[in-house]
Design a binder for these strands. Structure first.
Lengths: 201, 201
DNA sequence: CGGATAGGTGTACATTTGTACACCATGGCA
DNA sequence: TGCCATGGTGTACAAATGTACACCTATCCG
């Protein structure tokens, strides 16, 4: 399913606009650039291009992101490295960002949203050591056996997730530690899913 | 008139957002990323940065354009991932390259030259598991206690390097394995130095 | 002391913006 | 002939968005 000539013209306009202005055009700006009488004409072209995987639409103002045969180095992720997380605050906040690291997009699956520095050796049998950086996908859902970042009573921890009829258990992978049992009185939330790790020597 | 630390943090956030999402953030997205209670706090930072010539504001939705020392590509290495190494051949040849991966330059120290896929679990107590990718600096020198990639009689192996008055010992980090003793009759060479590892989940 | 500057709160408002819905025209194709 | 994708018109609306105004706090400095 290749882009039609009309769609290609829109794609070139997008690339041009982003290079020259620094931000994507709005739907109506595309409309006027091409002389359309309706914003819908431009919107349809955008959605057609999105359906072909040539760009992503965020649904927000100017939420256009070119992919693949497009603008910048497309195959690297830029992930924020989260440092100390203040109790009660969501993890994904600029205030926590220590630095940003570039990593190949194809490295982790699913695609992670941030990196977290591991503290402690409770996951040592999973090959996750103290001071390792783990790549985390921000999501509140997990299946049994997956490694998750969870928040229990304000503290952030990395454990194997397990849920059964008695409740949620956060299992370490180190015989020296015991499981965290989450009961109804605990403030509990899954922060994200483990996608892989990076370790500098 | 140099940007203040707070303004620098905003600038880094902008650059990062543009790289990762493909379009600039809105004023309110900046506000929420930093935990401000008012969109005005973010807007003021933007206008302060604009007054310093570090960016341009178009007055439209996400109308932020970085100037000068802003957008450029992150500092990334492109490392070849070495697949199966044929006996007798040097590691660093084109024929062995499976693919190339981009990784942040600041991640590993010293700077590695290639990636190697680990086979086996002889280094499990060092947190190096089967199928991990390890970053290797190509060098023939090593000090005691360092993790090295070595070639013994044609076979490539990852072990802890130790040299004493009796000769060279290649120590596993797994009690189930025993050390490789290198004597004068062996064909032995240090291929490189372990710099870190990457693991996809 | 007094004043300027950086950084921030709180509220309000006119535009901008993405999208939804209904409808029309053309051309390829089975 | 009927069908469907492409490309387009016209209208409407809730949400997102930049900005203006008033006011607060702390720090630095002459």
């Amino acid at each position: 399913m290749a882009p039609t000539p009309a769609q290609l013209k829109v794609l070139r306009f997008l690339r041009d606009h982003i290079i020259r202005r620094g931000y994507p055009p709005s739907v109506r700006e595309i409309q006027h650039a091409f002389g359309f009488a309706s914003p819908n004409a431009a919107a349809k072209h955008l959605h057609a291009l999105a359906a072909q995987g040539l760009l992503e639409l965020a649904g927000r103002a100017r939420g256009i992101r070119l992919l693949g045969g497009a603008l910048p180095a497309a195959d690297t992720l830029t992930l924020p490295l989260i440092g100390k997380v203040a109790a009660g605050m969501p993890i994904l906040v600029e205030a926590h960002v220590e630095r940003n690291l570039s990593l190949d997009r194809s490295l982790f699956k699913p695609e992670p949203d941030y990196l977290l520095r591991v503290v402690g050796d409770s996951m040592i049998d999973a090959g996750i050591l103290d001071a390792d950086l783990i790549a985390i996908r921000h999501t509140p859902e997990a299946r049994n056996g997956q490694i998750v970042v969870a928040r229990v009573d304000g503290a952030v921890t990395v454990k194997v997730f397990r849920r059964d009829h008695r409740g949620v258990h956060l299992m370490p992978r180190n015989p020296a530690y015991s499981a965290i049992e989450v009961d109804a009185t605990s403030d509990f939330a899954i922060e994200g899913l483990y996608c892989g790790l990076v370790r500098g020597a």
